[in-house]
Design a binder for these strands. Sequence first.
DNA 1: ATCTGTGGCGCG
DNA 2: AAAGCGCGCCACAGAT
Length: 586
Amino acid sequence: MDGLIRDRAGVAAFLESVRGAPFLALDTETSGLDPHLEKLLLIQFGTAEKQALVDAQAVDADTVRSIFRDHLVVMHNATFDLKMLAATYGDALHLEEAQIADTQNAEKLLRNGRKTDHLLQGFALKVLAERYAGMELDKSIRQGFFGIQSVTDLSPAELLYAARDVEATWKVFARQLEELERDGLLKVLAIEGAASVAFADLELKGAPIDKEAWKKQLDEAKSGSAQARKALDKEFWTVADRDLFGGTTLNYESDEEILGALKKLGLTLESTRREVLVASGHPAALAVAEYREHQKIVSTYGDAFLAFIHKKTGRLHPRFNAIGATTGRVSCSEPNLQNIPSGSAFRACFRAPPGRKLITADYSGAELRILAEASGDPVFIDTFRRGGDLHAIVAERLFKKPVNKHENPELRARAKAINFGLVYGMGAQGLANQLGVRLDEAERLLEAYFRAFPKIRDYLGESARQALKRGMAETMAGRRFWLTDLRRDGRDEGTLTRIAKNMPIQGTNADITKLAMARMYQAFRRGGVDAFLVNTVHDELVVEAAESVAEEAKAIVIREMRSAGAEFVKRVPMDVDAQLGDTWTK
DNA sequence: ATCTGTGGCGCG
DNA sequence: AAAGCGCGCCACAGAT
């Protein structure tokens, strides 16, 4: 016999034999990577000593659910396995009740910012198994799994390999646990684990997109680009060669060629960045900027983007990298749904299917509220508690003039620039550039700002000083970013200081948003509410819901986002703006 | 033909 | 073009 478990009794007997284990490791083998097209073949789980191999097609959801019932379940790159499990067994798995930990995320948390002190680089299980358990994993065997349609086609060698992955994952996590505890990372690991289920659901369900509406928007950008290109040909007509079709032979995508052609027109620029082009005021430079604007849309959000629409679901299923940034932020790719133009109509092309709605919810001024919490500044705290306009209040204190919707809006804009710049560790020179004022004026503004808000100055200064001293910056959930290797690589102190100031703020925002995702997922499932996440953009969550429960879903979104915020930010409310509509808004 | 680094620019 | 943080994608340029 092949030793495979094919029924509920077999799984129950195995679970009984590992009842006292502190956690179980789990892995799956699939016929491929796409949960909508491929099959789950095998579920392997167990401990370092013993592993069960389960024929995934032979057991039901409730049987698989029992694996998760009494144990923390550890996976390497959990989102992938959870996605395959959810696609195979559906809601009956009740993953919202599962406790998950991920060895890959654990390693990212432990190494964040550090080049590994080992010879082996990367976060693959093979690497961790060798590093933590001295195990050699032969990943070449896995090639044989692709395209296999039944678990009975797996050879004994392949089954052995599958079991060894469980053993390795278990041993790796056992060792990681000690380090995670030592570094105070267990809390953030738990947040990541809970969020991994939400990420699996998010990737599996995907985002709904109106392809025809998108194409229409794209066509506008295409014609804008073509028109701008004609204008470019005119501008550069005298200094460029002609092609056979009445245009120039200039490659407008080449910065080098653009700079050369501008020079022939008597304009010498240091860069082709938009700000530089516009500042020159030269008509040819302005034409380049105009062309770029349209062409950016055409190239980034054009055919390559639409090619990501899934042939089976008709939706976009991007990859969310839960720990994509050193700060703990999520990143997104294939396609990136975190950089869709916000002022344009493209966001409105994300449209709920018939009978459904989209909820767009974002934290209002998240980073400044986190700064209020961390610094304890009384004006910041009072303003946020009252629901006041912080930028206006800051402007009034700074400029001693009334600032509101009707009076002195330019002063509010200045205050806003300082408020946001501070979070990034901006200095006087940066502020001068931002506001277009002289350096000495920017210096005076910053001085006045810190006189008015000494606690902000003290917090930012002390936070960065401590971080540089410890060689590590930390968020409110205990997520860490080690600065030591950056310093060794020769990053200057100014840059290190800015990173040290920003990481705890940006990273705490990430902690909160991920906790909100996890709680929201659980609340929808436990409440039997037909609603799920379709996008996450740093301080914003987009949820799709059945029309009949959309208002209820919206209330849950707001409640869970606020409560997740309150977990860390206690002195001011983490207010949420939420909108219910047919499309992604703002 | 494919890889890597860079400039530029979309987002928070 | 930058003494303002964090991403991913496009196109080019130079390398293999």
